[in-house]
Design a protein around this nucleic acid. Sequence first.
DNA 1: CGCTAATTCAACCATATGGTTGACGATTCC
DNA 2: GGAATCGTCAACCATATGGTTGAATTAGCG
Lengths: 125, 125
Amino acid sequence: MVDDSGVRPHNIRMSDPISLVFAALSDPTRRAILTMLLEDDMAVTDVAQPFAMSLAAISKHLGLLADAGLISQEKRGRVKWCKLEPDALSAASVWMQGFGQFEPVDLDALERFIESELHGDEPSD
Amino acid sequence: MVDDSGVRPHNIRMSDPISLVFAALSDPTRRAILTMLLEDDMAVTDVAQPFAMSLAAISKHLGLLADAGLISQEKRGRVKWCKLEPDALSAASVWMQGFGQFEPVDLDALERFIESELHGDEPSD
DNA sequence: CGCTAATTCAACCATATGGTTGACGATTCC
DNA sequence: GGAATCGTCAACCATATGGTTGAATTAGCG
């Protein structure tokens, strides 16, 4: 048979930094987490608080966000603090600007978005 | 019991529009396709041309991009034309701007990005 | 009409993702 | 020291993703 000593899967999924960032942003839970971190640094348990899922799940999400460079995590004592790292967004943002035929950021829409991400289920009005 | 014979998987993966857009952008092939479409509308086969993967694979990528609203596809005769729909990016872009503590878009970096996405492997000179 | 080109479909495969639970390693507190 | 708290790890499950191949569909061409 073919020498499959390498047997390496025919298909290597390599993830460049931008792909990681976009992938991280593609989940609503993670976007919500980022939005929460806009307000302040938080401990993992506190991040998990509002979500209807296990701590472990949130921990994984935070891991992905950290992998993408979108947050940093610093362990002090037994609590691990999560801090937003908005710079990681810049590469992705720059990439998107290339398609910037659309209007140059509707600040009003922006506010509504942030608002709805923060407490999306409550009728804001 | 409440067992709603639908045995519905405990976990429904719903994808809001923004998630779809970010997910679509999280793949380098798809970003490359979008970049190509920046230049001009293209037929599926032509899109597939530069890539080392099957037509079917590209067709699926285009499907995802269309689902996310990032492109539209119009079939004329037997060829299907793909057209960039940059407006779909605006929601995602607006979302990202909320984290806009980073510098307001380095146009130089932008050019380099577009350039490297267009023909990343060939010496551009 | 029959061929060929353009594209999708269907089945399949491997790996990634998002979630669960339960055990575990640290750390703080009494 | 022992118990509670913080967080991750490991194993598991279901589904999604990214790719393949080959067959089917549809449309133009000689």
